[in-house]
Design a protein around this nucleic acid. Structure first.
Lengths: 141, 141
DNA sequence: TCTGATTTGATGCGGCGGCATCGATCGGCA
DNA sequence: TGCCGATCGATGCCGCCGCATCAAATCAGA
């Protein structure tokens, strides 16, 4: 391990800094509007776009920890945004389904979320810069 | 609020994704080596580079919440990495000082941290790309 | 100088995350 | 068929975070 170059350290700091600020902005926007936490959004969107699925599959799609997803789904079920039903053909598993209230909630979250995205990215970078940024971040990912 | 462009959403997802993965990598590397949590590193570095300072100032430098810093410092003091002394001239305040053990611990964390930085950034982007990335992320920040 | 507003840091409480582990079920293989 | 390892999801425990609030000290203005 040789010491990373100065420009590497700068990019690292900026990556963590920008990521943290983006997250803070989105969470603040959602909270201000009395909406569910940011984590719920991705789950709701995944269910909306890909249809009902098993927790295990959601886990793969979202890159989230198993125990974390389990509790997240409990809370969302309690809030009436999803239903969790036994999975036919595999008595271990479950099927998570988006409820109408869940879809509605997802839609309600979007404007606040979009505002944060706009404020963090769109208002600060030109379109061609956003393309470059996305390309480089894909490689970092 | 108009709907953000598709490229904006892509950049947003990649920013959060890359940031999360970078954090995970760094935390994993530190944990694997039995070292303190990532958050401590920034505090130790700040004290090392800028000298003893008051919690309030650390807060400004690090962009961390007051209550969070307060408890972070308690743990670090308990671990012997810093000392917290009453502040002469302002009986409300304190002076946080890096101990030799703290400096040593900071040094011990560096290789693990550097490895994560190298793996996430340096090994994946060419030098000129890192410059571009840093530049764009600064504007996002 | 006295008083009220501000700054500094700590903390009780509830919620969430990480870790380890558990119970139940499934699937493969002899 | 019977058994064993693998998979799926839940949960107890503990630690950290976010929020609200508090007490002490300081500062500013009449």
């Amino acid at each position: 391990m040789t010491k990373p170059a100065a420009i590497t350290l700068l990019a690292w700091d900026r990556l963590l800094g920008a990521g943290a600020r983006a997250l803070r902005a989105a969470r603040a926007e959602l909270k201000r509007a009395g909406l569910p936490p940011l984590e719920w959004y991705d789950i709701l969107v995944a269910l909306e776009r890909r249809g009902a699925m098993r927790p295990r599959d959601l886990q793969g799609v979202l890159g989230i920890e198993q125990y974390n997803l389990s509790r997240l789904l409990s809370r969302m079920e309690r809030a009436g945004l999803v239903t969790v039903a036994p999975c036919p053909g595999d008595a271990r598993g479950q099927i998570v389904t988006l409820t109408p209230a869940g879809a509605q909630r997802r839609a309600a979250m979007w404007p606040a979320y979009a505002a944060a995205i706009h404020g963090s990215i769109e208002a600060r970078l030109e379109p061609d810069e956003r393309i470059q940024l996305a390309g480089m971040l894909e490689r970092v990912a």
